[in-house]
Design a protein around this nucleic acid. Structure first.
Lengths: 402, 402
DNA sequence: CTAATTTGTAAACTGCCATGACGAAATAGC
DNA sequence: GCTATTTCGTCATGGCAGTTTACAAATTAG
């Protein structure tokens, strides 16, 4: 009788979707899939107690999921406790697959992930894409995707959707790249250029990286900031287990948060944005290095060798990051911060000054800053997994296909 | 077949609530209430088409809502179109009421709002609460609440809950005031001191102000930043129609976003926080005024009189606000910004420099900065309405009482 | 005054989950 | 070894929610 009141769902007339029995069934199918997917092989009775339905109801749900090939019966569990042993259920390894793809500045990649989360096929092509026009790049990517799809199909999987991570801002239609500075692309409609056989989602690589951290991270909370630096400096804002995208889909532009309001001019029109202090180019310049091919590797190598200029440059970048993150933490109060992408590799030299700045500026218990263990794989895996999650979230939608 | 994939609900095993037929009914009752509440008197057929159920289903839902006193039948609509005229339904003006209360720095207030959103009773007591200990203040507030409740009951209403707005940080339990600098309170458990007859929610006045803007604002989008300055400078982050609270409930602390990282020291441990430039005390100091009783009124008065020092101080505060908001806009990409609380009254002198700073620093179309029309009433109304929303969101929960 | 249209309700129908009972398959105790 | 106990999966039954279909009531159009 004394609980917070104003958070009950649904709120607002906007989400006035009807609630019918079919919808109920769909949501319960999803709950079964989530339970089995999250907690390994499970008996029907175990699923029932996890999701709060009766064994009888779960039985019919499971039957349907087995019929449509999304669950598999592994056979009787090894007993150990009294009572008849259950029959273990697992997510199918031969059903739908999520196809992920990535357009990186220096590479292209694609992979196929099954419902179990296992990577079943992958293909990579190295070589810079800076300044290349979209058509040939997307054509090459399509080739990789087709290879990965073919391999997945040989393994008994079928593609349920394609998700593409790109180094730039993506419109809310999830098809159009509005601006990708490092590729020099503008308003490119990937939806028109990629194969149309399956549902397509295009998103910022920082967003997919953040989602990968949420879904695959070891002990990632449901509420965190995932900071990555491939394109400028982007952050994925994960709030309560889902991504905050903003009205136009541009949320998380940490790179243009003002750090020193009277600092050097920035391409965005502002002054002293974080990117002027912790962006790739800025750090290279401060370290006295020339921009070459593998810029991050170069920085990490020099820093490991003890190059004082590089170390100082990274230290200062960490401080600037700390200032910008102070603002973000004050605004969002997340549970933690995760450094991903290029920042993960440079973390050893960024973290000390970053954490010093944070603890100096924020009162109360320090928020943990951790380093992503997914490394550069994050965006690609996040993309593929986003398709898998979509299947888990609405198994009925996928049942018809195959 | 080409839609964004990874946003379908439910996501994550966390919200594994069972989905039974009773839950379905409850959600559909809520949909009916929302439809009628949002779109004025409506016939059963109109509700049915709005929420996507059949007329028959809506009929039984409406019957139940009328029986429990949440809806009222107004009688036949005046015809005008062909066909049998419908029977108008309206939200009841004699059912549950939301009781809102506010502990302000310079006043106490309480009010009762019916399901229609009408204020049916109010009580105010002026006089500063700075430095007073919690007990007598809460006792006085309880007196106001009891007066308002009694008046509401005389009008045929019954209190469905009490929501209290306080000028400080509130723990996620929605009962405890962690810190209220302007009252000099710390760790005060209001839940233990307020009447326990109805469900209680305590929240930051900035949050309630933001919710009021969302629910009562004229053309407020579902995605905005509501900035107010009563306690330091707080922002309510409304994302997709609901409030972003943060892990500990401290989200929106705009006042401690760094503006000039090497600026003057701040109480929070940092340097150059926004509060050092746009906080009440800072502005008064910059304007060469002494802190007195009605500080905001004083500033507004002098500014209107053309006092150059005051004008300059406000101009500079606007600039600082613009810098901090640039960061927030880059992070959150909201649809707009609303100035509320004290800032609304000072808007004429803050806005020019604020908007100049924003348009200089952010690329793309400028985000509209608007001024709240609720003024100082926002938090109190938001509190009362939060109770009303809770009833609309789950009418079945309230049906038993009364 | 009749035809067309729309509203609200009642009866029959379908779908979904709960309940309760039962056989199957294991352990525990004697 | 044998029986009692426990747990699992399934089946038949029942209740509940919304849909479908049909119909009377109340209005406008011609």
């Amino acid at each position: 009788m004394t609980a917070p009141l104003h958070e009950a769902r649904p709120t607002g007339p906007g989400r006035a979707l009807p609630d019918t029995q079919q919808g109920m069934r769909r949501r319960n199918l999803a709950r079964v899939m989530h339970a089995v997917s999250a907690e390994g092989p499970l008996s029907r009775a175990a699923v029932a107690s996890r999701i709060g339905l009766t064994r009888a109801a779960v039985s019919t749900l499971v039957d349907e999921l087995i019929r449509t090939g999304l669950l598999e019966e592994l056979g009787p569990e090894r007993p150990g406790r009294v009572g008849r042993p259950g029959s273990a259920l697992a997510v199918s390894g031969r059903g739908p697959a999520g196809i992920g793809a990535e357009i990186g500045v220096d590479h292209l990649a694609a992979c196929a992930v099954d419902l179990r989360g296992e990577v079943r096929a992958r293909a990579v092509r190295h070589g810079t894409n800076r300044g290349r026009s979209p058509e040939p790049v997307v054509e090459e990517l399509t080739g990789l995707v087709r290879r990965v799809v073919a391999e997945a199909e040989r393994a008994g999987l079928w593609p349920a959707g394609l998700a593409v991570a790109v180094p730039g801002l993506v419109a809310r239609d999830a098809r159009t790249v509005v601006r990708a500075p490092n590729l020099d692309w503008q308003d490119v409609d990937l939806g028109a250029m990629l194969p149309g056989e399956f549902p397509l989602t295009v998103d910022n690589e920082a967003n997919f990286g953040g989602l990968a951290e949420l879904w695959l991270g070891v002990d990632t909370p449901g509420d965190f900031l995932h900071v990555s630096a491939e394109i400028g400096i982007g952050a994925a804002l994960v709030v309560d287990g889902s991504l905050l995208r903003g009205t136009r889909g541009f949320a998380g532009e940490l790179g243009h948060v003002p750090v020193h309001p009277d600092g050097p001019e920035c391409g965005c029109g502002g002054r002293g944005c974080l990117e002027q202090y912790a962006g790739e180019e800025a750090v290279l310049r401060a370290a006295g290095l020339e921009p070459g091919e593998d810029r991050v590797g170069l920085l990490a190598g020099r820093a490991a060798d003890g190059d004082p200029d590089v170390r100082r440059a990274l230290r200062e970048a960490g401080t600037a990051l700390g200032i910008a993150l102070t603002g973000a933490l004050n605004l969002l109060d997340p549970e933690g911060v995760v450094l991903g992408g290029a920042l993960a590799g440079l973390a050893p030299w960024l973290l000390p000054s970053l954490e010093a700045e944070l603890s100096r500026r924020t009162a109360g218990p320090a928020r943990p800053v951790s380093v992503s263990r997914l490394g550069p794989e994050g965006p690609l895996l996040g993309a593929a997994h986003s398709v898998v999650r979509a299947v888990l979230d609405d198994p009925a939608a996928v049942a018809g296909r195959a």
